[in-house]
């Protein structure tokens, strides 16, 4: 098999979900009730809008993640050819990691790794 299978699997997955949902819509009973289509909030009507700007406490983490995730992508090719590159590659990656860990330590010291 080759990469065509990707499309195949995509189609099969869509088919699986789509078929089941359509089947359920056909066979499952349905009754109209205005209470039922309310959003669940422990039986009390929701007050105010729900799609509000959410105060996430991990904004800094998200930025750090961006940095580190890109680094991960860079490390993958290195990991594959590590054996061929030998010591030179190791020293290079050491320097690379040194800078990364330094950055992480800096963030740590600056209390950026505290959820607020």
């Amino acid at each position: 098999m080759n990469q065509d299978a990707l499309i195949l699997f995509f189609i099969v997955a869509v088919f699986l979900v789509g078929f089941a949902i359509v089947f359920a819509y056909i066979v499952a009973p349905s009754s109209v009730n205005p209470q039922k289509s309310e959003a669940y909030e422990c039986g009390i009507p929701t007050k105010g809008i729900t799609w509000l700007q959410f105060n996430v406490g991990y904004y800094l983490f998200a930025i750090l993640f961006l940095i580190f995730d890109v680094e991960t992508v860079f490390i993958f090719p290195w990991a594959v050819v590590m054996k061929q590159m030998g010591m030179v590659g190791f020293i290079e990656i050491c320097i690379f990691f040194f800078i990364l860990i330094l950055g992480l330590l800096y963030a740590w010291k600056k209390h950026a790794l505290i959820w607020e």
Partner: peptide
Amino acid sequence: NKIDTEEEYTINMGPQ
């Protein structure tokens, strides 16, 4: 009754 602002919003925990 306070309209949920960007800062704070209310949520009911309970009765269910």
